[in-house]
Amino acid sequence: MSKVKYILGHFDDPDVMMSGIDKLQKSNISIEDVFTPFPIHGIENKLGVKRSRLPIAAFCFGITGTITAFTMIYYMLVVDWPMNIGGKPAFAFPDFIPVMFELTVLFAAYGMVFTFFYANHLFPGRAPRVMDLRATNDRFVIAIDASSNDINSVDSVLKEAGAIEIKHNERKYISYDEE
């Protein structure tokens, strides 16, 4: 039994799983992570996951885009080569706005998405750190570290909470290379 690394409680219903989290927490069992096929709203608060700071990143990238666009256009049309177009001023700010807006959106979108990929270590070819294959299909999987908890009591709490399957994984993640 000491070879068991992770205990996985499988649920087939997100609400049952949510009450399962409550029961585990009441029994002082710490939850490593939860893997679900779709986002479960409200789970962050239960597990004490902090609010994402990605919106701040998006704002910073966006404002960078605005400044980049303005600086670029200002340099090109006003500083480097001002053109006389019907005697109108070279610094025609309203005409700068469309491109400033587009670059704001472009920088915000790409900056935020790449920050997200970086923070979650998502990139093409990354070995998936998946504990159970059905967690991307129809199972809601609570993962519990076996070394810091008593396996038998975890099993009984999970069973009581309505887990339809309990797995004892000897490896942390599934190997995608075998098979």
Binding site: D33, A58, M112, F116, H121, P124, G125, P128, A135, T136
Partner: peptide, 25 residues
């Protein structure tokens, strides 16, 4: 599909950030 999935695993933090990204996009 593993390469294309970027190693997605559906953990709590991944979904939370995913939802934030979707909303802001």
């Amino acid at each position: 599909y593993s390469i294309m999935s970027f190693g997605w695993n559906g953990s709590v933090k991944t979904w939370q950030r995913f939802e934030t990204v979707s909303l802001i996009l």
